[in-house]
């Protein structure tokens, strides 16, 4: 019961989803849509587990007065504030729920994303210091591609030609090889899952 049924569910679910791809019939289309909806519904139920985990860990830190425990009050306040506002006063534009989203969530998110500008620079700097053949190839290519949009006077045209050649020829070749490798690895993994060989996600007992 504990193992056979889940493995059977994996097998039937996996085989059906693979087969329906080849079958355009309305019947297969509908079952596919139901499956996708069911997965979404299970995901929403699972949100309960997620929030319970976040809550437990935060409360645990407060209880044990772990380092920086005070910040957990802010997390829990933000969490429950949003949930109460969102569930009971609506999520339309102009409601407090969306105001908090626009004035607190959005600026922090954009700032986190913008940090990437600094990190790209520091990562490039480090790659520059590693003087191996492969890192030199990586860096030279990066420089050529980076400069393609910047006016460089007389060499601008040449740089642009080289950049577009790199993008469409050697870059494309490598991209295809990587993609094919990932494809093979992915389908082998999918097959192992469906056959029940790969089951670390189910744990052991």
């Amino acid at each position: 019961m504990r193992w056979q049924i889940p493995l059977l569910i994996v097998l039937i679910g996996g085989v059906f989803m693979a087969v329906q791809y080849f079958v355009p019939l309305e019947f297969s289309e509908r079952i596919y849509e139901y499956c996708v909806d069911w997965v979404i519904i299970v995901g929403v139920f699972a949100m309960g587990l997620g929030l319970w985990s976040l809550f437990r860990v935060s409360v645990g830190k407060i209880q044990t007065k772990a380092q920086g425990w005070g910040y957990n009050f802010i997390t829990l306040g933000g969490l429950f504030g949003m949930i109460l506002l969102g569930l009971f006063s609506g999520i339309e534009e102009g409601k407090q729920f969306m105001n908090l989203f626009w004035y607190i969530y959005t600026p922090i998110q954009s700032s986190m994303f913008a940090l990437l500008a600094f990190y790209v620079a520091s990562a490039a700097y480090r790659a520059f210091r590693a003087r191996t053949l492969v890192s030199t190839i990586l860096l030279l290519t990066a420089v050529v591609i980076m400069l393609r949009l910047i006016p460089l006077g007389p060499v601008s045209g040449l740089n642009q030609t080289v950049a577009s050649w790199i993008l469409t020829v050697p870059n494309m070749a490598a991209k295809r090889a990587i993609a094919m490798g990932i494809g093979l690895g992915g389908i082998a993994t999918a097959l192992k899952v469906v056959l029940g060989i790969e089951r670390s996600y189910m744990g052991k007992e």
Binding site: V10, G14, F16, V36, G183, L184, G186, I187, V194, Y201
Partner: peptide, 27 residues
């Protein structure tokens, strides 16, 4: 585990053909 099996099984089946198409044959 039944729920996990359902999610992982259906997604794996779905991705099997998707990977084969986009990462395999199309490439």
């Amino acid at each position: 585990r039944w729920s996990l099996a359902f999610i992982v099984g259906t997604t794996a089946g779905l991705q099997f053909t998707r990977y084969l198409e986009s990462n395999g044959i199309r490439q």
